[in-house]
């Protein structure tokens, strides 16, 4: 089978795509690349469909052996990338030949790197997506994380422009984050003083942060509503359990839950949060749904404009 063989999977490498939608009746979560903008860039640079299957490598340590002619791009977290021991630039298309060894070192800034191959990895979708959700045992190769010996099929590609995203357009995974939040759900059940404390004080990412959600620590805030019927949770929803410490629910979140929620973090900022390590300081700031919509449309227009200006190396 032509494609790529996993020599070492590293800390946690998962096949992902844009996510699994429309399966909430079975209770299936969405999954998908945690830093979606970085994942989309890896696919954009290669001329793939933006949601083509790729590898999300958390923390680093992934090694692949190529056994086809192809092109790859690695985006997301800052880490050393090498091809046959020779340093290769991130956010850039590289040609690979049969026998080439691709190696991702350990992350120095950010948490998750994305490795895409031209045409995308050919993996059979489960419930409409290849996104791996370990808690569910769904997606990827038999619901598992990548392991040494796994083979990821990919079509041979012999001609592709060697695009690179200019440095100025690559995201910075800064230490202090400001997460824009659309107030919603039970926001009204949090007294104004509680909400002011929520926006004025900083929070820190705890070690209890994974693909399901990021638990934060800081000023406890409390809702006046304690009992709630379980209801649908959208991406980025900020849940406040009785201990008052916020949890930002991300890609592998539970679909329904019964803790009060103050609103939801803008998806563009969820992607930055997903790159944040424990101890990262952050603030929340409220925005209107109109501002959120504007930010999303602007990000799309900007990304399309940058893409159209890219020139081959």
């Amino acid at each position: 089978m032509s494609g790529f063989e996993v020599i070492a999977a590293g800390v946690l490498s998962l096949l992902q795509d844009r996510g699994r939608f429309g399966q909430s009746a079975l209770g299936l979560t969405t999954g998908g690349a945690m830093d979606a903008p970085s994942a989309r860039w890896a696919n954009r640079l290669l001329g793939n469909d933006y949601g083509a299957p790729l590898i999300e490598c958390s923390v680093g340590g992934l090694q692949l052996r190529t056994n086809t002619s192809s092109y790859i791009a690695v985006t997301g977290a800052e880490l050393p990338l090498s091809i046959n021991g020779k340093a290769a630039e991130l956010w850039t298309v590289h040609k690979v030949q049969p026998g080439d060894v691709i190696e991702l070192g350990m992350v120095s800034q950010g948490l998750r790197a994305y490795l895409a191959a031209s045409g995308g990895f050919a993996v059979t979708p489960q419930f409409g997506s290849v996104s791996t959700v370990l808690r569910e045992g769904i997606g990827g190769l038999k619901g598992n994380k990548l392991q040494s010996g796994d083979v990821l099929a990919a079509q041979p590609v012999n001609q592709l422009p060697r695009l690179s995203l200019p440095l100025a357009y690559r995201p910075q995974f800064n230490r202090v984050l400001t997460l824009r939040l659309v107030e919603g759900y039970q926001a009204d059940s949090f007294p104004v003083t509680e909400r002011q404390r929520f926006y004025l004080n900083s929070y820190k990412v705890t070690p209890q942060a994974d693909r399901m959600g990021y638990k934060l620590t800081g000023t406890a805030i409390h809702s006046q509503q304690s009992q709630l019927l379980s209801e649908g949770i959208c991406y980025g929803a900020v849940q406040i359990p009785p201990d008052g410490q916020p949890i930002v629910l991300l890609n592998d979140r539970q679909t329904l839950g019964g803790y009060p929620k103050i609103g939801s973090v803008l998806s563009l900022d969820c992607a930055l949060l997903a790159q944040a390590v424990a101890g990262t300081e952050l603030y929340f700031t409220p925005i209107s749904p109109e501002q959120a919509h504007n930010a999303l449309c602007l990000a799309k227009v900007r990304t399309d404009a940058i893409t159209s200006q890219l020139v081959s190396l």
Partner: peptide, 9 residues
């Protein structure tokens, strides 16, 4: 009720 950037409940 508003839920998020692209969600209503």
């Amino acid at each position: 009720t508003l839920a998020g950037e692209n969600a209503l409940i």
